[in-house]
């Protein structure tokens, strides 16, 4: 991701700002000029929050050199406040993952550009504190 692109998207990445469509009423992530469902351009920014659950996940063992420090990388399909998004799952080893488990958003480093470049931060999800299981609290 370029410096300019990350900077423009910093609110989306830091605070999960997505899009709500005023025409069909649906909300999605990330931010866009048009609704991905009905094509309407009558859209507004919306913060994606609320209860989050892990719908599915994939464990990536073959990673780039840069990501070797945190391998394996876990990519999750997460439903948060009714919106589905693909995100990294952190603070979990593969054996701790369970489909349906409660998650919560955290701010983490997502990319570091070499020894002297920028450090990029964004929201990831981790198993919720005080009850990561699929049951209630």
């Amino acid at each position: 991701m370029s410096i300019a692109r990350h900077w423009r998207r910093r609110h989306n990445l830091y605070r999960l700002i997505g899009t709500r469509c005023r025409s069909c009423g649906r909300t999605f992530y990330p931010q866009a000029q048009r609704c991905i469902y009905c094509g309407s351009s009558d859209v507004e920014q919306a913060r994606i929050d609320g209860e989050a659950r892990l719908l599915s996940y994939s464990i990536v063992y073959s990673v780039t050199d840069e990501a070797r420090y945190e391998a394996p990388v876990i990519l999750g399909l997460v439903e948060v406040g009714g919106v589905k998004l693909i995100t990294e799952i952190t603070d979990a080893s593969p054996g701790e993952l369970e489909v349906g488990m409660r998650l919560e958003p955290v701010l983490r480093k997502v990319s570091i550009h070499g020894e002297s470049g920028l450090i990029y931060y964004a929201v990831k999800f981790r198993p919720a504190m005080g009850g990561g299981g699929s049951g209630e609290d």
Binding site: L107, K109, K124
Partner: peptide, 13 residues
């Protein structure tokens, strides 16, 4: 701290 954490992310939480 984990590999994706630093003083900024910890301070944020």
């Amino acid at each position: 701290a984990g590999p994706d954490e630093d003083s900024t992310t910890m301070g944020y939480e």
